[in-house]
C-alpha cells in the first residue's frame, strides 16, 4: 500500500484524501465538481438529442409558446409567464443557497439555518410547479385528431385562432361506445377508456360548420406560423383521421410530434428528479446544521458542496428553459 500512494496516510484521516489538497481544493469539493462535469455532459447529451430531433423535424416542430400557455387558477392564454415564474423561483433559491454558504464562511449558524430553509422551500415550490406543468400538459388544452399517416390536425376558427374540440363538436359519438366500469356489474376485460368524441363525430361536425378550418403541423418558413388548410384540403386530410387525441403522453401528443412530448417528459423529468434529490440532500444538511455538526467540525464546507450541486441544478434549468421554451 505504501508504495502506491504519494503521501503516507499514517496518522492522518484517510477519508477525504488524507488532507492532500491538489489545486487547493478539498477532496469532496473537487469530486463534486467532477461529478457536475459528468452530469453536465449527460444533460448536454439529452439536449443535443433534442436539438437533433428538432432539426430533423424543423418544418413541423410544435411552437413552444402555443403549448405552454397556462397559469394556475386563471383561464386564458399566457405564454411563458408560468415558466418565467419557475425560473425566478429557482434562481432565487440559488441566491439563498449562496447566502447560506457565505454565512457558513462566517460561522453564523443561525443565518445558515434560515437561508438553507428558504432554499428548501424554493426547491419544493419549483417541483410543485413542475408537477402542475406536467398535469396541464398531460391533460391538454384543445384536443386534436391524428391521421393514419401520423399527422396531427388541429382546429381553428375563422380568425385563425385555435379552438377546442368541445367548442364545435356536436351530437353524440354515434357508435354507442361507453367506458365500462366494475360498477356496471359487467364482466369485462380491462381496455382503453372511450373518449368523449369519436372520429366520425368530429368529421361530421367539421362538415356541418363552415367556419372551422384545420391547421396542419407544417410551418410556413416566412411567417413561422403553422399553415392553415383550406376547407377542401382540410376535409381530405380529415378523411384520414384515425384517432381523437386529447392531451399528451408518451404515445400521442395533441400539440404535434409525439417525440416532442417524449423529450419534454424525459428532460424536464430528469431535471425534476435532480431538483428532488437536491431537496433531499439539502434537508439532510439542514438537520446537520441544526444539530451543530459543522459547528463542531469547525467549518461549513459541506454546505458549500451541496450548494454546488444546487447551483448546478439551477444552471441546467437555465438551459432547459432556453431550449424548450424560448428558442
Amino acid at each position: 500500500m505504501e508504495a502506491n500512494i504519494a503521501v503516507s496516510s499514517e496518522k492522518k484521516p484517510t477519508w477525504g484524501g488524507g488532507g492532500v489538497r491538489p489545486f487547493g481544493a478539498s477532496y469532496g469539493k473537487m469530486m463534486m465538481w467532477f461529478f457536475i462535469v459528468s452530469d453536465a455532459l449527460t444533460f448536454s447529451g439529452f439536449l443535443a438529442a433534442y436539438g437533433l430531433t428538432r432539426f430533423k423535424f424543423i418544418d413541423s416542430w410544435p411552437i413552444a409558446d402555443e403549448v405552454f400557455t397556462h397559469i394556475p387558477f386563471i383561464h386564458g392564454e399566457f405564454p411563458m409567464y408560468y415558466v418565467a415564474f419557475m425560473t425566478f423561483i429557482l434562481i432565487f433559491s440559488s441566491v439563498t443557497m449562496v447566502l447560506a454558504v457565505d454565512a457558513g464562511h462566517k460561522m453564523n449558524k443561525k443565518k445558515v439555518t434560515w437561508y438553507l430553509f428558504a432554499t428548501i422551500i424554493g426547491g419544493l415550490i419549483f417541483v410543485g410547479s413542475q408537477a402542475w406543468e406536467w398535469k396541464t400538459f398531460i391533460k391538454g388544452s384543445y384536443g386534436a385528431v391524428k391521421t393514419t399517416d401520423g399527422k396531427i390536425l388541429q382546429f381553428v376558427n375563422e380568425s385563425g385562432k385555435q379552438i377546442a374540440l368541445s367548442d364545435f363538436v356536436v351530437g353524440d359519438r354515434g357508435d354507442d361506445k361507453v367506458t365500462q366500469t366494475r360498477k356496471n356489474g359487467l364482466w369485462f376485460e380491462s381496455g382503453e377508456s372511450v373518449g368523449q368524441y369519436s372520429v366520425a363525430q368530429v368529421i361530421s361536425s367539421y362538415n356541418a360548420n363552415p367556419s372551422i378550418q384545420i391547421r396542419s403541423e407544417k410551418i410556413d418558413l416566412d411567417t413561422k406560423q403553422k399553415i392553415i388548410l383550406s376547407r377542401e384540403k382540410g376535409a381530405a386530410e380529415l378523411a384520414k383521421a384515425k384517432l381523437v387525441v386529447e392531451g399528451a403522453n408518451l404515445e400521442v401528443n395533441e400539440y404535434g410530434n409525439t417525440i416532442f412530448a417524449d423529450f419534454f417528459f424525459f428532460i424536464t423529468g430528469f431535471h425534476g428528479f435532480h431538483v428532488f434529490s437536491g431537496i433531499v440532500i439539502n434537508i439532510i444538511i439542514f438537520f446537520n446544521v441544526i444539530l451543530g455538526t459543522y459547528e463542531r467540525r469547525g467549518h461549513y464546507e459541506m454546505v458549500e458542496k451541496v450548494g454546488l450541486y444546487w447551483h448546478f441544478v439551477d444552471l441546467v434549468w437555465v438551459f432547459v428553459f432556453t431550449f424548450f421554451y424560448l428558442v
Binding site: 448536454s44 443535443a48 436539438g51 437533433l52 432539426f55 418544418d59
Partner: peptide
C-alpha cells in the same frame, strides 16, 4: 457533441 448532432439533424431533415 452539439456540433455533430446538429449537423446530423440537419442532414436527416
Amino acid at each position: 457533441l452539439v456540433t455533430l448532432l446538429l449537423i446530423e439533424g440537419g442532414y436527416l431533415f
